[in-house]
Each structure stands twice: as C-alpha cells, then as structure tokens.
Simulated assay, not measured.
Amino acid sequence: MVVDLQARLRDALAGSDVDELVELGCDLADAGRQEQALACFQRAVDLGQDWIWFNVANTLRELDRPTEAVTAYQRAIAAGQSDAWLNLAHVLDSLGDLAGAMEAYRAAGQAGGQPEGHVQLAHLLHQQGEPQRAQAALAPALQRGYLPAVALAARWRWENTRESADPVLEQQLRAGAGVDGSARADLAELLIATGRREQAREQLQLGAKLGQRECWLPLGNLLAGDDLSAEPGQEQEVDGAEVDKAGAEEAYRAGIAAGDEWCHHNLALLLLQRGDVRAAEEHLLAGAAAGDELAQLAWQDLHQQD
C-alpha cells in the first residue's frame, strides 16, 4: 500500500488530473500522511480548482498550522464553499479571536445553512453574559428541531428555573440527552429531584457507556450518596439505597481517564474518608492544576490541618 501511494503521488504531481489529485490527497490524509496530502491539494489549486482550498485548509488545520488554515478557509468561502464557515469559526475560536469566531458562526448558520453555527454562536454569547442574545441566536436551530439546540435550550431552562415537575422540560432534556452529555446529567438531576434515583443512575450509566464524559462525575456523586462529607467508616443511606463507595471511586477514576479534571476533587474526598491522605493530596493537586478552585481550597484546608 505504501509503494502504491508513493507511485500514485509521483504520477499525480507530475500530471494534471484534478480528480486523481483530490482522491489521492484524501487517501494520504486517511493514512496520516498530511504533508503529502497537502501537496496534492495545493497542486489541484494551482491547476485552477479554487474549491479545493477547503481541503487545503482542513489539512493545514490537521498539521497544526491554524493561521494558514484561516486564510485557506477564507479562500474556500470566496470560491463558494459555504460549508467552510463552520470550520473557519472553530479555528478562529481556538486562536482566541472571539469576534471573528462569532461572525463566522453566524455566517455558518445563515449563509452556510448549518444549524451548528447557530448553536456555537449561542454558546459564545451565553458565555459572554448575554442570555437574551444567546436565545435569539439559538432560535433558528430550534425551529429546525436540531437536537443539540434542543438540548442546549433545555439545559439553560433547567439551570435558570429548576422546574423539576415540568413534564415539557423533562421531555426536552430526554430528547437532547442522546447528543449532549450535559443534558443527560441535568436530566439525572431532575430525576433525583423528583425521587427517581434509580432512573437517574440508569441514565448516567448509559451516558457513560456512550462516551459522554459529563456523566461520570454526577454518577460518582450519586453512588457516593451526594454526601462526601461523612466521617471515615460512617455508614450512609439515601432514599433507602445503600451508598456504593467503590462504585463511586470507579466512576471518578473513569471520569478522570475521560478527561474530566473535576473528578479529581471528589475522588480525593473519598480517599480522605478512608485515610489515604497521600493519594488524596495528589488528586487535589491535579485538580488544582487544571483550574478547579474547590480542589485548590481543599488542598489548602488539608495542609492547614497539619
């Protein structure tokens, strides 16, 4: 396969078959040979196929050359590739160009017809403390029934109202749970608030199996009884169900492995309960290094007791 790709590359770069250049570029990209893929795409552009700037931009992004990728995405858009707006927005966002990212997300939703652009714009506006503008930005995606938008709107509503007895809100959270781990975590919180802890556990376990890392921390909290302040050896019981400390520890460790740094703090509290101070300190330091203020405060409290 390596020899075949190399021979094809030599022939393609020497010729003028645009279809072969694009196909080979995609094959090389799939094989992890991004530099050679880039050469194919750039050769196709040199042959007058400006729409292939989109492929050039995606490859530059893979090569961690974001500034060049921005220029290439802009050229792709100028060539009529409106789908490039969303990718451009992601790169600008990663570069810290908030204003540019917001404009590109807006264009992705409007000119590109991509509802994800509306969702991402709404995210940014909400983070900037503009909830009304965020809701307005999300509206077109909601009108299309786009599930990530449904999930986000339901999450905001739960965050603002905590209307646990609202069947419509529960329905919206259930609809969004399949595409948004935070919506599933909020659904579990609603279920707990209405006395359905077993259903909440099932939802969180399902989310964890589906790779929704947002579910590990609340699953650990649920298994720990939502009370991590108990003294070592103290038995706990919540709503008639025994607390599963071993299961909680497993959940927190799985969350850390999945990239949820906030699990360090709660795992550390479990470790402190069983007297493993050294391991608890390591996790508090890891959480603090990741920006978790609770972990930082817990680490300071631990050392003030020395």
Rank of each mutant, 00 (worst) to 15 (best):
L5Y: 08
Q6N: 15
Q6W: 11
L13C: 05
D17Y: 01
A31K: 10
Q36Y: 09
A37Q: 00
A37W: 00
A39I: 02
A39G: 03
C40E: 05
A44P: 01
G48K: 06
G48T: 10
Q49I: 05
I52E: 12
N58R: 14
D64W: 06
R65N: 05
P66V: 12
T67N: 12
Y73V: 01
A78Y: 02
L86G: 04
N87T: 02
V91R: 05
L95H: 04
G100H: 07
M102R: 15
M102V: 04
R106S: 13
A107R: 15
P115M: 08
E116F: 10
G117V: 06
G117Y: 11
V119N: 01
A122N: 03
H126Q: 14
L169F: 10
E170M: 12
Q171M: 14
D180T: 02
G181Y: 01
A183I: 04
E189Q: 14
L190W: 01
L190C: 14
I192L: 12
A193F: 06
R196W: 12
R196M: 10
R197V: 10
R201A: 14
E202Y: 08
E202D: 15
Q203H: 11
L206K: 10
L210H: 11
Q212S: 10
Q212C: 07
L219N: 00
G220T: 07
N221R: 15
A224I: 00
D226Q: 10
E231D: 14
P232K: 05
G233S: 04
E237K: 11
G240V: 03
A241K: 07
E242L: 11
A248N: 01
A251W: 06
A251H: 04
Y252P: 08
A258V: 03
W262C: 08
H264C: 11
H264D: 06
N266T: 08
L269I: 01
R274S: 03
R274P: 04
D276Q: 13
V277E: 15
R278W: 12
R278P: 00
H283D: 00
L285F: 03
A286E: 08
L297F: 11
Q305H: 13
